[in-house]
Simulated scan of single mutants.
Amino acid sequence: MKRTFLALVLGIAVLAPAARPATAAEPSLTIGSTAPALDIEHYFHEKDQKVTKFEDGKVYVVEFWATWCPPCVASMPHLAKLQEKHRKDNVQIVSVSTEDVKTITTALAKPHPTEEKPMAEVTENYTLTCDPDGSVSQDYMRAAQRNGIPCAFIVGKTGVVEWIGHPMSMDDPLNEVITDKWDRIAFKKAFDRERIEQEMMQKFNQLTRTGKFDDARAMIKDALAGAEEQADKDMWQGYLHRINLMQGTISDEDLAYFRNDLKQAAGDPIAVYRAASNLYGAARGTDSMKLLADDLIKAMNGAMDDAEPNLQVAFYARIAYINADLKKWDEAEAAVKQAMDATTSTRQKQGLEGLLKQFEAAAKADQE
């Protein structure tokens, strides 16, 4: 329940349970690739402009979503605002689901969890579609080896893919593509580095999950020895710190590294949440948590005011789990109650109520 609730509040919904192996071939669709033409079966709004080919000089966002994906639904108001803001800039946002027409039509009639209107009305500013045969998803998601939604592809004025990522993080890249200030080469370099890191992370997680910390450390040291750029060296060094964190053998140097990681994320609520969540996941259940807990909670509280409502719920829930890990039950229960106050989703509130009961029962058991 812990992993599911927090993942659905903010992150991505996983499309395929099996991750690709670390030796997988290069993706056939990446930054700088010509964007495949769209062959979409159904458009939901009468005023939607159908897209079959990408017009020169126009910018497109091709976003993949589903009705069963809470982060996708949470992104809808943001996409609507982006479309309204950039309509004058010749931008068209096209959201594609692989679900059937009936499923989506039924969902669109329901109220949006954070807006006081139906989802059909929330999404009317941008192009909402479905492609049940999955051909568009095949051309984009599978070709780019992306396993989670929501996922957005920015297609630039020359018809090539400029950016790939979470739609809640695309405001600045989209602005730069529109104004011809986007550095595609620099982004591709960072994007490819991230892909390599994800492949290594998969192997790293396999080793650490089975307690093979020495093997994991040896693998990272080999990668560090072969790294040429400082950014890569810094990345692999971070993994070595992480191993110490997971083993509960954290040093002052490790602690300083993680505190700096949180400091670097400050100012970006999503980055703060991800950094804090990664550190929590590695430290929970170990002595390291006792040393890092205050820093994690302080970072999330510091980002709270600038976070969107769903992210605030995620912050409070994460703070609750940190306190629960330390058996600070009063603080854990208080954070859950704050999350309940922050959410407008009945489903989330029900999940939080169940979590509160779990904490209350655990606190009672500790007292006996």
Rank of each mutant, 00 (worst) to 15 (best):
10 L>G: 11
11 G>D: 15
15 L>E: 14
17 P>T: 04
20 R>D: 14
22 A>S: 11
25 A>D: 12
30 T>I: 09
36 P>G: 04
38 L>M: 09
39 D>S: 14
41 E>S: 15
47 K>R: 09
47 K>D: 13
48 D>M: 13
52 T>A: 02
60 Y>Q: 08
61 V>W: 07
64 F>Y: 11
72 C>A: 12
75 S>T: 14
79 L>H: 07
80 A>K: 00
88 K>F: 07
92 Q>L: 06
106 T>H: 10
113 P>D: 09
114 T>Q: 06
115 E>A: 10
126 Y>L: 10
132 P>M: 09
132 P>D: 12
141 M>H: 12
149 I>G: 11
150 P>L: 06
150 P>K: 13
152 A>E: 11
153 F>Q: 12
153 F>G: 12
157 K>N: 12
164 I>T: 06
165 G>M: 10
168 M>G: 13
168 M>Y: 08
176 E>C: 01
178 I>Q: 07
182 W>N: 03
184 R>A: 08
187 F>H: 03
193 R>S: 11
194 E>P: 02
194 E>H: 10
195 R>E: 15
200 M>H: 14
205 N>E: 14
213 F>G: 12
233 K>S: 04
241 H>M: 05
242 R>I: 08
253 E>W: 03
254 D>E: 13
265 A>R: 03
266 A>D: 03
266 A>F: 09
273 Y>L: 05
273 Y>H: 11
280 Y>Q: 00
282 A>K: 10
284 R>N: 11
290 K>A: 13
306 D>M: 05
307 A>Q: 00
313 V>P: 05
323 N>L: 01
323 N>C: 05
330 D>N: 08
331 E>Y: 09
337 K>V: 11
340 M>C: 03
354 G>N: 13
356 L>Q: 05
357 K>F: 02
